Amino acid sequence: MYSRLLVTTDGSDLSAKALQAAIDLATAMRAELVVLHVVPLYPTSYFEGAIAYEHGEIARIERQWGEQGQALVDQAAAQADAAGVKARGVILRSDLVADSVIAAATKYECDLVVMASHGRRGIGRVLLGSETLHVLTHSTVPVLVLR
Rank of each mutant, 00 (worst) to 15 (best):
M1E: 14
Y2N: 03
Y2W: 05
Y2D: 05
L6H: 00
V7G: 00
T8N: 07
D10K: 03
G11L: 01
S12Q: 02
L14N: 05
L14K: 07
S15P: 01
S15F: 00
A16P: 01
A16V: 08
K17R: 15
L19E: 08
Q20S: 14
Q20A: 14
Q20P: 09
A21M: 08
A22M: 03
D24H: 05
D24I: 07
L25V: 02
T27N: 12
T27V: 09
A28L: 13
A28D: 13
R30E: 14
A31W: 01
E32I: 03
E32D: 12
L33N: 03
H37G: 01
H37I: 03
H37F: 00
V38M: 08
V39P: 08
P40N: 09
P40T: 07
P40W: 10
L41A: 13
Y42K: 10
Y42P: 05
Y42T: 10
Y42A: 10
P43K: 13
T44E: 15
Y46A: 09
Y46C: 08
E48W: 11
G49S: 07
G49K: 04
I51M: 13
A52C: 12
H55Q: 15
H55G: 12
H55F: 12
E57S: 11
I58T: 04
I58R: 04
I58L: 14
A59H: 08
A59V: 07
I61W: 12
E62C: 10
E62R: 10
E62V: 04
Q64Y: 08
W65T: 08
Q68D: 11
G69A: 07
Q70M: 13
A71C: 04
L72P: 09
L72F: 05
V73K: 01
V73M: 02
D74A: 08
D74V: 02
Q75M: 09
Q75A: 15
A77P: 09
A77S: 07
A77C: 08
A78G: 06
Q79V: 09
Q79M: 11
Q79D: 15
A80D: 04
D81M: 13
D81S: 14
A83N: 03
A83I: 00
A83W: 01
A87R: 02
A87E: 05
A87H: 02
R88Y: 05
R88G: 12
G89T: 09
L92T: 07
R93Q: 11
L96S: 10
L96C: 06
D99K: 12
D99A: 13
S100N: 05
S100D: 02
A103L: 06
T106H: 13
E109W: 08
C110A: 03
D111C: 04
D111T: 03
L112I: 01
G119M: 11
R120V: 04
R120M: 10
R120T: 02
R121S: 15
I123H: 01
G124Y: 10
R125I: 11
L127E: 00
L128R: 10
S130D: 02
S130F: 01
E131F: 10
E131Y: 11
L133A: 15
L133N: 14
H134R: 15
L136C: 12
L136F: 14
T140Y: 10
T140A: 13
V141H: 05
P142W: 01
V143G: 14
L144W: 06
V145F: 10
V145S: 10
